[in-house]
C-alpha cells in the first residue's frame, strides 16, 4: 500500500513538474551574466499586444517571439542599447516602458518639476507680500501710537481729567 502511494505521488510530482516546465520557455545562456541582462531587458520592454504587460510577464505569442529575439541578439553579442533600438525600430517608442527623453516627452518628464517650482514661487510671493503688508501695517500703527495728533491729545487729556 505504502509503495503504491509512493509511486502515485512521485508520478503526480513528475506530471506537475512537466506541466510547469512546458509553460515556461527555457534558454541556455552561453555566459552567466547574460541571464541577468535577459531578465532586465524583458522587464523594461513592453509587450506590443498586451499593452500593460512587459515581455517577462506576458505569455502571448508575440512576447514569446520577442523574448526569443532578445536571447538571439544577446548571444550574437549585441549590447542592450542595440537590442532596444532594434525593438524601437519595429514597434516604436511604445515598446519602452520608460519613455525616452525627447521633445515629445519633455513635458511629461519635466512638467511635474515645473509645476512644483511654479507652486513654490507662488507660495513665496504670497508669503512675502503678506509679510511686507503686515510689517507696513505695523509701522503705520506704531507711528500713530507714538505721535498723537493734537486733537487726539486733547481728547485723551479730557478723559484723563487733567484739563488745564
Amino acid at each position: 500500500m505504502k509503495i503504491v502511494l509512493m509511486i502515485v505521488t512521485s508520478l503526480m510530482m513528475m506530471l506537475s513538474y512537466n506541466a510547469l516546465a512546458s509553460s515556461v520557455d527555457t534558454y541556455q545562456f552561453s555566459k552567466p551574466e547574460y541571464e541577468a541582462r535577459f531578465h532586465d531587458l524583458n522587464k523594461i520592454l513592453r509587450c506590443p499586444k498586451c499593452q500593460n504587460q512587459n515581455l517577462a510577464d506576458s505569455n502571448s505569442m508575440i512576447s514569446q517571439d520577442l523574448r526569443k529575439e532578445v536571447f538571439r541578439m544577446m548571444e550574437e553579442g549585441r549590447s542592450n542599447d542595440q537590442i532596444i533600438e532594434f525593438m524601437v525600430m519595429r514597434y516604436g517608442d511604445f515598446v519602452l516602458y520608460k519613455p525616452k527623453v525627447d521633445k515629445v516627452t519633455y513635458f511629461l518628464w519635466y512638467g511635474p518639476i515645473g509645476f512644483g517650482v511654479l507652486g513654490l514661487l507662488i507660495l513665496i510671493t504670497v508669503v512675502v507680500r503678506q509679510r511686507s503688508k503686515r510689517t507696513a501695517n505695523d509701522d503705520t500703527q506704531q507711528e500713530s501710537n507714538d505721535h498723537l495728533s493734537a486733537q487726539e491729545q486733547q481728547a485723551l487729556d479730557k478723559i484723563l481729567g487733567n484739563e488745564k
Partner: peptide, 12 residues
C-alpha cells in the same frame, strides 16, 4: 517563424 512579421512590427 514570424521573422518577416517581426521586421514589419506585426504583433497580431
Amino acid at each position: 517563424n514570424g521573422q518577416l512579421g517581426l521586421n514589419l512590427g506585426v504583433y497580431g
